[in-house]
Amino acid sequence: MARAHSTRRKVVTTIAAWGVALTIFFPVLWMILTSFKTEASAVAMPPQFLSADWTLENYATVWARSDYPRFFWNSVVIAVGSTLLGLAVAIPAAWAMAFVPGRRTRDLLMWMLSTKMMPAVAVMIPLYLLFLRFGLLDTRIGLVLVLMLMNLPIIVWMLYTYFKEIPGEILEAARMDGASLWNEIVYVLTPMALPGIASTMLLNIILAWNEAFWTIVLTTTKAAPLSAFIASFSAPQGLFYAKLSAASAMAILPILIMGWFSQKQLVRGLTFGAVK
């Protein structure tokens, strides 16, 4: 819309949009800034922005006092593992729902989503006992299983919406061309749905990475990921803001960086495939 006053309007909206975006981002920025301050500088009043004493010491301390690489590696294994396992189970299911829909497909999908509504605390005790019984407590495989099941409905739903965009005729063509079901999924469906699958994968890695209930309840030390590590770190108030911030930054930076690098797929994934 070309308007006479469009330049002025553009300046105003630009300033407003940047103001809002920076406000939303500010808490993260402030945490990162704090993580580079000395403890005294971190709690100084009035707050110090540029005049603070900058240091890397907090990171060194957190690194020395905790076993960061292990937590990090656990997070990676659990997030990626549960997502890949989930995809392996969900791709066939989403194929079936999208391309061979029956009368009950919709209900089935809604039922799957409704399992996500089951509050985790409601099954905390039984799950804890089951884990105890089967020796899964504080193991990565146990967490991979739980997070996979927890996010499976979301994965199925997202893939379903992406698959629905693919015209059924192309899969029929593959069938006419002599492709078996397996070949149809491997050579035609999966490559065509790759952007959607990537988005689903990214979103679920984030959801699993940030999961902070089961990871706390079901782990102690061996298999604890970063979300459990950070929960163990938030102890005495105010005494070490800078170190707390450093630990927090170390917990979220990997995913933040991954998210920013894969922004395009992620934005698509963040909408859960539900909006085009």
Binding site: I24, P27, W30, I252, G259, L270
Partner: peptide, 27 residues
């Protein structure tokens, strides 16, 4: 990128940022 950042922050970290760095009555 700026606007989606909070989504990447795990709940315990989000809570502790707000609790300690923003809402704390002294600091």
């Amino acid at each position: 990128i700026l606007v989606i950042a909070p989504f990447f922050v795990m709940p315990p970290v989000a809570a502790s940022i707000w609790e300690n760095l923003f809402m704390h009555p002294q600091n």
